[in-house]
Design a protein around this nucleic acid. Structure first.
Lengths: 107, 107
DNA sequence: CAAACAGGTTTGCATTACAAACTTGTGTTC
DNA sequence: GAACACAAGTTTGTAATGCAAACCTGTTTG
């Protein structure tokens, strides 16, 4: 392997989607990738984030259309349900493929 | 695979070393991991960063002792040489192993 | 000697991640 | 039925970050 090809691969890093890259959002998006949808309180507690922090990450992913957010009432309590969109899936798959290339360079 | 083990793995994301995780620094550290050492101007140009930006990333890695920075004069010009430390290698290896686990969860 | 240049560093600014405080609606207690 | 606690989120305030423009220091060139 030449030094030049090393650079070529690592330059991918500059193209990384930072919305996906942030650890809390990567975690959230990955969970939804696997289980499709879940509610706010469940996710927030499992992930060990404060409600405020979780809420802002959720909003960012929603604005990017990576997830859908639906608010319902269940037993008269509000419940916010998050689910991943096709766009979200695509973004995560792209991210995964980019990161794999970068990490492979370190073998 | 259970939903619980999914969470167990993804909680790793909360433990990610953000000093390594930032794309520009991940790129820089990865390059040094492979080629051991190189100079400021060469790296900055290859990576396509401004000098200012490169300089601050370099300083952060230096403060963390992930790289060593040596300033010499070559042909009467200042030259700054960066090299990875053992601590830097270890941090990158740990990061790589953590990210691989997270990405593997998405298979 | 002035002006351009090379190699970095510092400063200023816009963005971000985070938690504390706030809001809104539901049950509970007296 | 008024006051109070509670659950589910959102908004706000703040400290930290990433970035490039401006700055500094020494060297070469006209």
């Amino acid at each position: 392997m030449t030094t030049q090809s090393l650079f070529d691969v690592l330059l991918i890093a500059g193209d990384i989607d930072k919305l996906v890259h942030e650890p809390a959002r990567l975690m959230l998006l990955s969970i939804l990738y696997k289980i499709d949808s879940a509610d706010f309180v469940f996710l927030q507690k499992q992930m060990g984030l404060t409600r405020g922090n979780f809420s802002t990450h959720m909003s960012k992913l929603e604005e990017a259309h990576y997830i859908d957010v639906k608010k319902e009432f269940v037993e008269r309590k509000p419940m916010t349900v998050l689910s991943i969109t096709d766009e979200g899936r695509t973004a995560l798959e792209k991210y995964r493929s980019q990161m794999k290339k970068i990490l492979a360079e370190l073998e």
